[in-house]
Simulated scan of single mutants.
Amino acid sequence: MTAIKLGIVGVGKIATDQHLPAIAANGDFHLLASASRNASIDGLPGFTSIDEMLARQPEIEAVALCMPPQHRYQAAHAALTAGKHVFMEKPPGATLSEVADLEKLAQAKGVTLFASWHSRHAPAVQVMKSFLAKHAPSKVEVIWKEDVRHWHPGQEWIWEAGGLGVFDPGINALSIVTEILPNAMFLKSGVLEFPANRDAPIAADLRFTDATGLAVHAAFDWRQTGKQSWEINVATGAGELRMADGGAKLWIDGVAQELPEEGEYPSLYRHFASLVKNGQSDVDLSPLRHVADAFMLGKRKEVEAFDS
């Protein structure tokens, strides 16, 4: 397959830190241009909108969308309508309904739509999934706590309605849990803490179960300083799984596991290239569905104001 001619939309921190290095290292893609209101990429044509980019660079075959989720639908709709394959950074959209509409449009146009979940491509995830397929989990504890000031400095969109707040990182944990568990889980109760001056939560405490009665507890918090916590612990009859550093490390019954070395974003782009080659899409909305359920079922608790 010749290299897929790619455009990237939204040249911010995630694009610079993760997407651009992964694209540069993957021979299946050739980056042609970017579209962003505030930044560009050295040596490439830069435009201020996706419409301008597609009009001026019609040879583009696929686009990677890295802008905030509140603005992703219009960009994805424009690209799909133009017959381009689309890679969507997580979360794929601000609502479930708009992503479902994009999935229908991609099917109608015969192009690939990829709702990416980068944490599912962490080295420990498939090892955990294989183990739990053989040894049923009896309890799951998720601890996902980080410092928003470090990871999202000055990014006000995350505090706006649709920006998800603490679920921006929390959805990464949910993407892993929904990948590794043998049965679908659903929310039973939750408490969402909203700063008095924000429209999105800064912390969440959630309790899930499944058809077997499995207890899954998830604690998300954006106020953690010092060491960051991205951990999932799963009890089974064959020992405990302990995942740390977002899936970079794994112990099974106390024994450290040797894990693949491929990074999350290189794996995502390898998967995207395979989807395009085989004429397929990958649009799993289960992590976003759990976030929507949390907003529906979770109790709202107001806490002190928070300034970035």
Rank of each mutant, 00 (worst) to 15 (best):
L181G: 01
L181K: 02
L181P: 01
N183K: 13
A184C: 02
A184I: 03
M185N: 11
M185T: 02
M185Y: 05
M185W: 11
L187G: 03
L187S: 05
K188E: 02
S189T: 04
V191C: 00
L192A: 00
L192D: 00
E193L: 02
E193M: 15
E193V: 04
F194M: 07
P195T: 00
P195H: 03
P195V: 01
A196R: 14
A196L: 11
A196G: 11
A196Q: 14
A196P: 10
R198E: 05
R198Q: 14
D199Y: 05
D199A: 12
D199C: 02
A200E: 15
A200F: 10
A200M: 15
I202P: 08
I202E: 05
A203V: 03
A204D: 06
D205A: 08
D205E: 12
D205P: 14
D205M: 06
L206G: 05
R207D: 07
R207L: 08
F208C: 03
F208W: 06
T209L: 01
T209P: 01
D210G: 13
A211F: 11
A211M: 06
A211T: 00
A211N: 10
T212R: 09
G213S: 03
L214Q: 10
L214R: 12
L214E: 07
A215Q: 08
H217C: 08
H217S: 10
A218E: 07
A218P: 13
F220K: 11
F220T: 06
D221C: 10
Q224T: 14
T225L: 09
T225P: 05
T225V: 07
G226E: 06
G226Y: 15
K227E: 10
Q228E: 09
Q228W: 09
Q228T: 09
Q228K: 13
Q228A: 04
S229P: 08
S229G: 07
S229V: 09
W230D: 11
E231C: 05
I232N: 09
N233R: 10
N233L: 09
V234G: 07
A235W: 08
A235V: 12
A235H: 10
A235R: 10
T236S: 05
T236D: 02
T236L: 03
T236M: 08
A238I: 11
A238K: 12
G239C: 03
E240N: 00
R242H: 15
R242W: 13
R242A: 10
M243R: 14
M243F: 10
M243V: 06
M243Q: 10
D245H: 15
D245N: 13
D245G: 08
A248E: 08
K249T: 01
K249A: 06
K249W: 07
W251S: 02
W251F: 06
W251T: 03
I252A: 01
I252Y: 00
I252V: 03
D253K: 08
D253H: 11
G254F: 14
G254A: 00
A256V: 11
Q257K: 04
Q257M: 04
Q257D: 04
E258G: 13
E258Q: 13
E258S: 12
P260E: 01
